[in-house]
Design a protein around this nucleic acid. Sequence first.
DNA 1: TAGCTTTATGAAAGCGCTTTCAGTTTTCAT
DNA 2: ATGAAAACTGAAAGCGCTTTCATAAAGCTA
Lengths: 335, 335
Amino acid sequence: MTNIRAVAKKAGVSVATVSRALQKPEVVSDKTRKRVQKAAKDVGYRPNMMAKVFRSKKTHSILVLVPDMSNPFFARVISGIQKAAKERGYNVTLGNTLGNKETERDFARLLQTSQTDGIVQLSASYPLDIADNDVANPLPIVNCCECVTDDSMPTVQLDNRAAAQAMVRYLMGLGHNRIGVITGPPESPLTSGRMAGYKAALEEAGQVFDPSLVTEGDYSLSAGEDRASALLAADQPPTAIFCFNDEMAYGAMRRVKQMGLRVPEDISVAGFDDLPYSKYMEPALTSVCQPSAEFGPVAVHMLFEMIAGSLTSDRHQQLPFELATRSSTGPVNLA
Amino acid sequence: MTNIRAVAKKAGVSVATVSRALQKPEVVSDKTRKRVQKAAKDVGYRPNMMAKVFRSKKTHSILVLVPDMSNPFFARVISGIQKAAKERGYNVTLGNTLGNKETERDFARLLQTSQTDGIVQLSASYPLDIADNDVANPLPIVNCCECVTDDSMPTVQLDNRAAAQAMVRYLMGLGHNRIGVITGPPESPLTSGRMAGYKAALEEAGQVFDPSLVTEGDYSLSAGEDRASALLAADQPPTAIFCFNDEMAYGAMRRVKQMGLRVPEDISVAGFDDLPYSKYMEPALTSVCQPSAEFGPVAVHMLFEMIAGSLTSDRHQQLPFELATRSSTGPVNLA
DNA sequence: TAGCTTTATGAAAGCGCTTTCAGTTTTCAT
DNA sequence: ATGAAAACTGAAAGCGCTTTCATAAAGCTA
């Protein structure tokens, strides 16, 4: 183990000087700096970062808490987080919680045991005992993508309500009056946001909300299949199905076709997230496009502000969405 | 900051005793152990893990080096790694290299600066200067999924050659004699393994290898579209296209259909990886199914053996594949 | 009870580094 | 040439914890 002392010895200076020469070169004379650098190279010095971390109380790592990182949407967001973190010399630790609250808490405790400097949270709830969150001096935790509505953490999110509303408006514009929705778990604020948008669109069109058009999924491919069957088995089936994510939409489209119906002639299907695969579905899926690569950098920026001591950006930021209209949606077939 | 000293004071014992009571309870008397535990609780003691890490020289974290974590296949593998790591109390740091060799090296250096205990490498080459790898006492690095053929690291991988061969055999069984392939970058051993399988299948069927049926992709959706056009524009186009991953197959299918050809009646398409979406494509994609969730645990197991000092498992492990035959492949149409 | 081993505890060193403090050298204006 | 300020450097403390070593207490054996 070549440590700082070995370098000091080799260079014939004190360890303090070595430390300075390497950390803040400007306070050391040219001559000794050169000498130290050469000595460091000669002995193959690799600073023990853990000692440094220990000493300086900065781990230079942040934790990403995510319910399921194999979800492509999350994967992209994480990728953006990692990229932004790396640009500032931070590493990213993965906290794949599988939706388990206890696991989440375990991971989040890394913050309290000085193993991470901050947390980007990709699921909905505050990951620690809320009591631990001193309002005046909050733990550096930022929520990303999940529209938490209380003020427990700073957030960066899509305006899920407006996005859902836009999608429903668009479907109505195609003549659809009975629009089914496959939601996510109701406890997710993401679900409620999108649901609110759905209702708002109905209302502004003067339509009444029909609960039989709403069915609850879990954002999985199979839920899409399953819930689509349910919707279509109704007395008065919808003419369009709006799924709260793309994966459920894939499932729904598959089931619709299996039932002998055509997309979009008999029934339109729309999704949310605009995964890269959606364009390759048959028919190509209409979806709400989220700026998945942008969430990370924004969240990381906010997080660093908190780590530095004060969040000066807006506490709640919104990113823009776009409607990607493709061939899975079309004019209602009144036949 | 409630440190160990605070607990010691509260419990009226020495810091040594606190450390022992908490780390190896059996060497401390019942009475004092209880007292210390209570004191720790009372003062809200959170051990500073970084001090511990520093002292014990074990970070309890491993690094995953991956070229692109938003690739669903990798995402699943990483998810498995993380799960296996967590079971042993290890954290996973993300090293998304974007294929950049320099970035990869940067990350890998975390090993040399004691910031991580080991590396699971999901791309093909040894991530550090090979000179750093002392053969007698190798750095704890395990390769996963990418079939490195030299012996620079222990590996866990699929028999890519056999898998590709099986797929080509299957296509031949359907009567296809001109099977096009869309490969990955030739420098990837993964590509060469699969290519070898393709050639082996040709050979065993007594067919000659026709280079005009081979075109190079980069594992992206758009490459699939692009390369499919190229293959089909040939004088004697193939009757089946075998893509070296599913995403290129998605692209290829789309392009084939855009060109007015039917899958599989006019042309069969097959992929590799069996992403969860493949079943939902239209037609559902035939693919080589890799046990994506199993790579991680095996790799982590091997890595821990190396960290512990000696790899006793086989240095090169293979996982089984399966052919998932679906409706994107069918009998050759001789019309 | 003497003399031994075993068990429980504390004092203190030290992991590798940064940083304060004080001391030494250099610079520079006078 | 001189003194004050500036620039540089080294000694040493200390971050929070583990662990060795020594000591004290307790438990045994004969």
